[in-house]
Design a protein around this nucleic acid. Structure first.
Length: 746
DNA sequence: GGTTGGAAACTTTTT
DNA sequence: GTTTCCAACC
């Protein structure tokens, strides 16, 4: 074992033990900052070193970002063969499996994936059909009930059985049943279905399960504390043959109960797998002593947890700061000023700072101040790029081309741009489709035969012709060519250009952004395909776009911050009613809910490496109303000896001054949002940075992260970027954008 | 069939 | 304070 991977790196005894324990179930209880990713990646490397085929290793994470990072690190340590290790999220893994085998469950393999908006639209239909007054029972709560059922692998039939005589439950199960029927008709799955259907597939088709059990002989699951029952079942099924299941988690960082995470999965792991080896990683390498003490003392107030206490060899560092302000405005001003002074003094860069808050709504004030101070920032969360109207419209065209059964997509675009097709025509078509037992789109193809449609059929024809033409085009050609054809043929952008408003221009810029995303996909995906692109789009989270390289302050919710670390962390809005949230205090089971909030607080505190600042405001505007909040209980749970407390005195300002500031703030915010709209992935300088020169030329040998080595055939200088044509030794000839491809001369 | 203005609802967190 | 929805108009 002399040349072993183990001798090349320094791992502490527990970490080493975890790496070495390759056979049988393994539970790693990894405290915050204890180097769990390091353990996982080295474990993968060690497995391969021991002769395990990389192809037989599966590593599951929760976000694409985490998967990407793990992939990169495994590549670094392992080198050859590392690309066959399957590193992916739960959802992507399931999609890949379902794309191959879902026909066995009666779906078509070109199924669509519905996002929250789509789910809502379906639910609206369902409620209309079942005559449910959505003012009495909200779509949202029905969807929540269904989602929860799916997390627990409860089918509509089971829910119905369980309902007994309870009218409300009966109603819910009827809605669930109809909702599933509609999804089925659209050949669509929602997020939760992705997991549940895969479990169903494995349970119904032993040969498919066996296939994947053979493939994934070694399984690792990251952030195990956040798995729900369905995900647990999925993993158990896969691991049941070889039993080489390694899960890593921290019960103190379980913050997704609302999304169905079952903390029992981690607390009872040893009961389900009796011969489990348990390893605790309690040494923290991330934070200062003071920060760690604060975290330890806060979390100690929770009752339902495995006992542990993180320790560190790091210095105590600065005390944790607590600042209370008159209002949210002064709070933001202080934080931004603090960040600026760090940067001006040369102590840190913008990207070393993160502002964390409980709710997305709190981001606004910080955005205003950051724009005003001309500080680059990146906002994570809020409205997803792919949820914007213009993007959803164009994607609906692509979905229609890919999956003609997706009625939601067809309905969305049939009259966009305007084709004079209205509600009457649509409902006739819908009736006809139902009567004939065919899909909505197939009914459109037979428009002239539909009774009572009149002139409508003439208006439908150009639409179906368009789709058929585009479908024919899809057969050969890239996804970007297809998207450009859609834009061209529909005149979507042309129409926006004619509008000539600020908003329309922003939309066009978003569409440009979409085009470059598609090109990037065409260039970098292993096997680019329309369904592959749609899937990537459906499964991205905003956090996946956080790029550590670019230099900006990061704004996000405490939830999004899990798994990240920053030298300077600000936790804003440390107030009773905000954090812990009003909802948790008022819940039926406040103790449990507040414990979850406390875990969230623990996650926030442990993100900080060097300095942690907590802030609160005495009065805060919430939904247009001023609230007066007490300081959060979590602040008081931090030991005094590592806390430095200051209450800022209110600044003396006249009423007029406030009024004029208000105006300025409004303007600043509107501008910020314009910028955000224009460049959804980066608020500051530019989206694509065209290098002023490339350090390779035609004929040079270059290396690409995924495609390996190759020879440069051609370099074309474009408006925004260089386009490089490379002949790869193994992957063939590819056209790549220089800024995306990050080619290295070798 | 499309546009517009005013009322209602909304905020906990997300793959 | 902001977004979404729907009714009344064109």
């Amino acid at each position: 074992m002399n040349n072993s991977i183990l001798n090349q790196v320094s791992l502490n005894p527990e970490q080493q033990e975890a790496v070495l324990h390759t056979e049988g179930p393994l539970l790693i209880l990894a405290g915050a900052g204890s180097g769990k990713t390091r353990v996982l990646t080295h474990r993968a490397a060690y497995l391969i070193e021991q002769g395990v085929n990389p192809w037989n290793i599966l590593a599951i994470t929760f976000t694409n970002k985490a998967a990407g990072e793990m992939r990169e690190r495994v590549n670094q340590i392992v080198g050859m063969g590392s690309e066959s290790v399957w590193v992916s999220t739960f959802h992507s893994t399931c999609v890949r499996i379902l794309r191959r085998f879902i026909d066995r469950l009666g779906f078509d393999t070109s199924f669509s994936i519905y996002d929250t908006d789509d789910q809502k639209s379906v639910m609206k239909e369902v409620c209309k059909k079942l005559e449910i007054d959505t003012k009495v029972i909200k779509e949202r709560s029905l969807l929540a009930a269904i989602s929860h059922a799916k997390d627990e692998l409860i089918s509509p039939a089971e829910m119905e059985l369980d309902a007994g005589a309870d009218y409300y439950k009966q109603r819910t199960s009827a809605v669930y049943k109809e909702y599933q029927a509609q999804l089925r008709r659209n050949n669509a799955l929602d997020f939760d279905d992705l997991i549940m259907k895969t479990v169903e597939l494995f349970q119904n088709c032993p040969e498919v399960l066996d296939n994947y059990q053979e493939r994934f002989r070694y399984i690792m699951v990251d952030e195990y504390q956040d798995t729900n029952t369905a995900q647990f079942r999925l993993v158990s099924l896969l691991a049941s043959k070889y039993r080489n299941l390694c899960v890593v988690g921290d019960d103190d960082q379980s913050i997704y109960k609302f999304r169905g995470a079952n903390i029992g999965n981690i607390l009872n792991f040893e009961k389900v797998f009796p011969d489990t080896k348990v390893i605790k990683l309690e040494q923290n390498y991330r934070s200062t002593g003071n920060i760690l003490n604060a975290a330890n003392d806060v979390i100690h107030n929770n009752a339902g947890r495995r006992d542990k206490r993180l320790w560190t060899e790091n210095e105590d560092g600065a005390p944790v700061h607590f600042r209370q302000f008159q209002n949210g405005y002064e709070e933001a001003e202080y934080i931004i000023g603090n960040i600026r002074s760090h940067v001006e003094k040369g102590e840190a860069q913008y990207r070393d700072h993160a502002i964390l808050y409980r709710t997305n709504a709190q981001s606004r004030m910080f955005e205003e101040k950051l724009v005003h101070a001309n500080i680059p920032y990146k906002l994570i969360g809020g409205v997803n790029f792919y949820a914007r109207k213009e993007i959803k419209d164009l994607l609906a065209y692509l979905k229609t081309i890919e999956n003609g059964q997706d009625e939601l997509a067809v309905r969305r675009i049939i009259n966009v741009p305007k084709r004079g097709i209205g509600a009457t025509t649509l409902s006739r078509v819908g009736d006809y489709a139902a009567a004939e037992g065919i899909s909505f789109y197939d009914a459109l193809l037979n428009a002239e035969q539909i009774p009572g449609i009149g002139r409508g059929s003439a208006k439908v024809l150009p639409f179906t012709v368009l789709i058929q033409t585009l479908r024919a085009r899809q057969e050969h050609g890239s996804v970007s060519e297809l998207l450009e054809a859609v834009i061209e043929e529909t005149g979507y952008v042309k129409e926006l250009e004619l509008e000539d408003t600020e908003e329309a221009r922003a939309r066009i810029e978003n569409i440009d952004e979409l085009i470059s995303k598609v090109r990037d996909y065409d260039d970098n995906a292993e096997e680019p395909s329309l369904s592959g692109f749609l899937e990537e789009v459906a499964l991205v989270a905003d956090i996946d776009n956080l790029d550590e390289e670019s230099n900006h302050v990061v704004l996000m919710t405490l939830h999004s911050a899990k798994g990240l670390e920053f030298p300077y962390v600000y936790m804003a809005g440390m107030e009773e009613g905000l954090f812990p949230s009003y909802m948790s205090i008022m819940a039926d089971n406040p103790r449990e809910e507040i414990e979850e909030e406390r875990r969230l607080c623990y996650v926030g505190i442990t993100r900080a490496k060097k300095e942690l600042t907590l802030t609160a405001a005495k009065q805060r505007m919430i939904r247009g109303e001023i609230q007066y909040n007490k300081v959060s209980r979590f602040v008081r749970e931090i030991p005094e000896e590592c806390l430095d407390i200051k209450t800022e005195t209110p600044g003396q300002r006249s009423k007029e001054e406030w009024e004029s500031r208000r105006e300025k703030r409004r303007e600043a915010f509107l501008e910020a949002r314009r910028n955000l709209r224009a460049k959804p992935f980066e608020t500051s300088p530019v989206t694509v940075t065209k290098a002023d020169h490339l350090d390779y030329g035609v004929g040079d040998r270059v290396r690409h992260l995924r495609f390996g080595e190759g020879t440069v055939l051609e370099i074309t200088e474009g408006r925004k970027d260089y386009e490089v044509k490379v002949e790869f030794d193994t992957a063939g000839v590819k056209k790549l954008f220089a800024s995306f491809a990050k080619l290295k001369k070798c």
